[in-house]
Amino acid sequence: MRSFRKLRHHSGGRWAVLKILILGGTREAREIADIASGERGFEIVSSLAGRVREPVLPVGAVRVGGFGGADGLRKWLAGNGIGAVIDATHPFAGGITANAAWAAAESGLPVLHVRRHGWSEQVGDRWIRVPDLAAAAETVAGLGERVFLTIGRQGVAAFAGSEQWFLIRAIDPPEGAVPARHEVLLARGPFSVADETALLAAQRIDVLVTKDSGGALTEAKLAAARALALPVVMIDRPSLPAGAVQVETVAAVRDWLRQQS
């Protein structure tokens, strides 16, 4: 694999370093940090929101926690000599994505948004696409008594008023209000199709609710729902900020970095 180095030669034989902030605890963010680590000409700082109790950490320098909003991020970029920003957060992390776009623009820095391709509906699927959590909670009410909720721990409160029974799967326990009738299943992917099918059958699930996160780690639940002919309430991703530069692969990130001056 070719290295994706960006070097600027200064007088005296010294190399200038491009310092890059990578936002996100996703697989893509870890891959970007791994590839860049040790490459001459780049210094990497990865930032995690701190919402997962035991995150899988990337290589290199890591900071955990928020920035205090968009202006806090702008000040952090200036105070830490950042030369470029890569937003590799979860596709549904709309707040930090908007903050990153604004802070980078205000700072005159290039910013790249990395978003893996969303899932595609296949023959046999029974998807119902909805724009947000509120619409999902409204839609699921008429689709069955037992619901498999796989939206992470945040956002569960949108279903708190539902009368159905919910199997809530997340890495960490949900935050805030929860449905009166529920069971929490703490687990981290990847999951196999066989295991997902067995889980849906054993729990007598009537409908699956999920976000269009994309990726292979949690895609098996969709195949299981297809095999059992279950409806899937699929929550669409929030839109990226206007004018955002977006790529879907780590290889494309490598190409983008080579273009930075």
Rank of each mutant, 00 (worst) to 15 (best):
I44Q: 06
I35R: 14
H10P: 00
G12S: 11
A36R: 07
A36F: 13
D34N: 05
I32W: 01
I44G: 00
G38Y: 14
A29H: 08
I35Y: 11
L18S: 14
D34I: 00
I20F: 01
I22R: 04
S11C: 00
E39Q: 15
E39L: 13
G24F: 09
G24T: 07
G38P: 14
I35V: 15
I44N: 00
D34L: 06
A29M: 08
V17M: 11
A16Y: 05
R30I: 03
E28R: 03
G38W: 12
T26G: 07
R27F: 07
G25A: 04
G25N: 09
L21I: 11
A16P: 00
R14N: 08
A29T: 07
L21V: 12
E43I: 00
A16H: 11
I22G: 07
G24P: 10
G41F: 01
E31Y: 07
R27C: 02
R30P: 05
I22H: 08
T26Q: 10
G41R: 07
H9W: 11
L23N: 11
T26R: 04
R27A: 15
R40E: 11
A36D: 01
F42Y: 14
E28I: 04
E39N: 02
H10T: 01
I22P: 12
R30F: 03
R40W: 02
I44R: 05
A29L: 05
L23S: 12
E43F: 09
T26K: 06
I32E: 01
R14Y: 09
G12Y: 06
H9C: 04
I32D: 00
W15K: 10
R14C: 02
E43C: 05
G24I: 05
E39T: 13
A16V: 01
A33K: 02
A16F: 05
G13Q: 06
E43N: 12
E31T: 07
E43Y: 13
W15V: 15
W15F: 13
E31M: 11
H10M: 04
I22E: 07
I32R: 02
F42S: 04
K19P: 06
R27N: 14
H10A: 08
H10G: 13
I32Q: 03
I20A: 09
A33S: 14
S11M: 08
A16M: 08
E39G: 04
A29C: 06
G12F: 03
G12L: 08
A16R: 12
E31K: 14
A36E: 03
G24Y: 10
R30A: 01
V17F: 06
R40C: 00
I32M: 00
G38C: 12
G41C: 01
L18Q: 12
W15Q: 07
I35G: 10
A36Y: 07
S11A: 13
I32V: 13
I22K: 09
W15E: 08
V17A: 03
G24E: 02
I22T: 07
A16L: 09
I35A: 09
F42R: 02
T26A: 04
G38D: 12
I44S: 05
G13A: 04
A36G: 15
R14F: 08
R30W: 02
A33E: 02
A29S: 14
G13Y: 02
L23C: 10
W15P: 03
E28F: 06
E43A: 15
G12D: 09
F42V: 08
G38M: 10
E28Q: 12
L21H: 13
F42D: 00
E39K: 05
K19N: 13
